[in-house]
Simulated assay, not measured.
Amino acid sequence: MRFLDDARRLDRRLTRRAASWDSPWARQVLPAVESAAQGTKLWWAAALTMATAGGRTQRKAAAAGVLSMLTAQVMSNAVCKQLYERRRPPEQMIPHDDVEDRPDSSSFPSGHTAAAVGFTAAVATTSPWWAAATAVPTAMVALERVHTGAHYPSDIAAGAAIGLAGALLVHRAPRLLLRSLL
């Protein structure tokens, strides 16, 4: 139990620190990141860009990214959020106005982070250059979710783990299906 208490205290301390980060860059860039990440618009746009600007490899990477993103969203939003109800960080912890725009759903895990990491990790197996390009917005989405008070850092970590699991599943599923059929 002591470990869990220590983890909760650390989670709260990191949330306060991230939410209190006040810089012109954060005030300008993070709201734009949040807007682009809503409804996974950012990842659909990246997939469309990859598929139209690239060749066969980029189309394959885009398809894997979208499939992994959708898998991660189902795992985080339709499964995990239903199994574990966690309140969002208290408004008193967030020293800016973004706290009013938080969702009402469970804080655990971060579906935005799951989708972002799932997309980027799946793209990485086929197109490392595009994965590097999408890694920056992926990290910014995770930071934005804590900065606005929508999530604790542990929600972000769980979302990232779910995103990685989604990418692994998408990467391994064709081989597993072939093995089961043969």
Rank of each mutant, 00 (worst) to 15 (best):
A78W: 05
A122P: 06
A131E: 06
L143P: 07
S127I: 13
H112D: 09
T52N: 14
L70V: 00
A139I: 06
A115F: 02
V99P: 07
V79G: 15
L168I: 15
A158S: 00
G55C: 12
P109L: 07
A139P: 04
V79W: 12
A142H: 04
H96F: 05
G54K: 10
A115T: 03
S110I: 02
M93F: 07
V146F: 04
A132Q: 15
D101G: 12
A115D: 05
T71H: 01
N77R: 12
V123E: 08
S68L: 01
T40A: 15
E85I: 13
A132I: 11
Q92D: 15
A124N: 07
S106T: 06
A158W: 00
A61M: 12
V141P: 05
A45E: 07
A132G: 13
G65I: 06
M50D: 07
H147Y: 06
A157N: 12
W129A: 13
G65L: 14
L169F: 08
R145D: 00
H147L: 03
A132V: 05
I94A: 10
T126M: 09
T126D: 07
L83H: 03
H147S: 02
S68A: 07
I162A: 04
E91I: 10
V146M: 06
A45D: 14
D155F: 04
W130N: 02
D101H: 11
H147A: 01
L164S: 04
C80K: 09
W129M: 15
L42P: 14
Q58P: 11
A158N: 00
T126G: 03
F119W: 09
A51K: 10
A116P: 13
E100S: 15
M93Q: 15
K41Q: 15
P90E: 09
E91Y: 14
S107Y: 01
K60T: 15
D101I: 13
S110Y: 06
V170I: 14
N77Y: 00
L169K: 05
R88Q: 01
M50C: 03
V146W: 02
S154M: 12
D98W: 15
A122V: 14
L169V: 12
Y152M: 06
G54S: 11
R145E: 00
W43I: 01
V141C: 06
P137S: 02
G39C: 14
T71M: 10
P95K: 02
S154Y: 07
R86G: 00
W44F: 15
T148F: 11
M69L: 10
A62M: 01
A47D: 00
V170W: 07
A72F: 03
S127R: 00
V170P: 01
W44Y: 12
V79M: 05
H112W: 11
F108E: 03
T71F: 03
A53R: 12
R88F: 01
W44M: 09
A142K: 05
D155N: 05
V66L: 13
A131M: 02
T40P: 11
S68Y: 04
H151V: 09
T134E: 00
A114E: 13
T71D: 13
G159K: 07
Q58L: 04
G54N: 05
E144T: 01
M93E: 13
S105F: 10
G118T: 01
S76E: 03
R87W: 13
D97E: 08
T49L: 08
E85F: 13
A114F: 02
A61V: 14
A51T: 09
W44H: 12
A139G: 04
L67F: 11
P89M: 14
D98M: 15
T138Q: 02
T113D: 09
